[in-house]
Amino acid sequence: MNHKVVSLFAGAGGLDLGFQMAGGYDLLWANDNDPDAVSTYKANLGNHAVLGDIREISSEEIPECDVVLGGFPCQGFSLANTGRRADDARNVLYLEMLRVVASKRPKAFVAENVKGLMLMSKGEVLRRIVADFEELGYDVQWKILNAADYGVPQRRERVFIVGTRHDLEVDFEFPTPTHGRKPDSGKLPWVSVGHALGGLPDPDSRHDLTNHTYSKYKLRFNGYMGHRAIDPELPAPTVTGRGDNKGGVVVLHHPSNERRMSVRELALVQSFPLNFEFACNQSAAYRLIGNAVAPSVGRSVAQSLQQALKTAKVAVKGD
């Protein structure tokens, strides 16, 4: 029987797509307060996405489930946010995930956030989050995963927090990297951004790809975010969702360093498949991609969790 999944702060559905790609999971219900995110999610993953503020959705409206996913908003935690503070209102939205986990008592939960979460208040924010979930009766582990180590053509470090219900005595281990910059025996080399985008047509040519348009925001080469020269022989720098409302400054240069990446190219750098449609305008699509979990990393975590749940010692309500 497949594990039933509820997803909070689902965004465009990167983490959910990873779980779907892993197999063995059924996506039951998802939520986000961004209309563009929900439209995109529905276009690709199903009509179970609900638009609304999770703070205004009661636990009774959310179905029973085996796994809760939550990429709770990261802007308050991000290193890119130089004004980040521990009391930023966005930093406590994880409490809504805590509420849902407390109510539904799933077998497991998976949360994802930016690396900067580790540094907030000298690590106290992360310790508090872990302790809160442990108090609910979950064994909690966290680890920084670099997307490039899982075949994504992007150097993207993110904190993954995984909790399994203590009474299940589940032995979860984070996925072993499959790729490396200087790969050991048995590992593949990192996927370069030049290789990943090499087969795509020029967006200014005739083609049949969706979302293959790009920002005309002026190229700069000053080393700052969105203005870095791209080395086509390496994975791209981190794709971000930060910038102006025109979708310009955060959009990475194409590996040719002659223009910025198209929406389709940036999505590939995040490991979204070619047929994933962003049902919104170009600016919103760039933002959704930058805020997403790389689906390939989500798939690796989902596979590891699935293996761990096979060892559960106690039957779960509803099984």
Rank of each mutant, 00 (worst) to 15 (best):
L234Y: 10
L309K: 13
F174L: 11
G23H: 05
L266V: 03
A312W: 05
V38S: 02
G223M: 04
G241Y: 11
L209W: 00
D66N: 13
K115W: 05
A80H: 00
N275G: 07
V140G: 04
S78H: 00
C74A: 02
P235S: 13
H166R: 15
R99Y: 00
H207K: 14
T210R: 15
R181K: 13
G83M: 04
L309M: 15
S262D: 06
L136V: 02
S103W: 05
M97R: 00
G199S: 13
G116H: 08
P183I: 06
S283V: 09
H207G: 12
P73R: 02
V250A: 12
E277K: 15
E277M: 09
T311E: 12
E169G: 06
S59C: 14
L93W: 01
I161Y: 02
V50C: 10
V269F: 03
S59G: 08
A236N: 06
V293L: 06
L27C: 01
L288I: 09
E258F: 00
E169P: 00
A147R: 09
G290I: 01
V251W: 02
V50F: 12
R127G: 05
P273W: 10
M97L: 12
A279P: 02
P203N: 03
E157G: 12
D32N: 15
A80E: 00
D208N: 15
V152P: 09
S59T: 15
D171N: 15
S78K: 01
K104T: 10
L136P: 01
L234G: 01
Q75S: 08
E157R: 14
R99C: 01
L266S: 09
A302C: 14
H227M: 11
G243W: 07
N146W: 10
P189L: 13
I230M: 11
R84N: 06
E135N: 13
L15F: 11
T213G: 08
G248S: 03
N2T: 14
Q20C: 02
K4D: 13
L200K: 09
Y286Q: 03
G52Y: 08
H227R: 13
E96A: 00
G137S: 06
W29P: 03
L168W: 03
E173F: 06
S262H: 06
V5R: 06
M225F: 09
R155D: 11
K187Y: 03
R287Q: 10
N257P: 09
P153F: 04
S215D: 01
R228K: 11
E134F: 06
E61C: 09
H179L: 04
V6D: 11
S271A: 12
L234P: 04
K122R: 15
F19M: 10
K4Y: 03
S58M: 06
E60I: 07
I144C: 12
N146V: 13
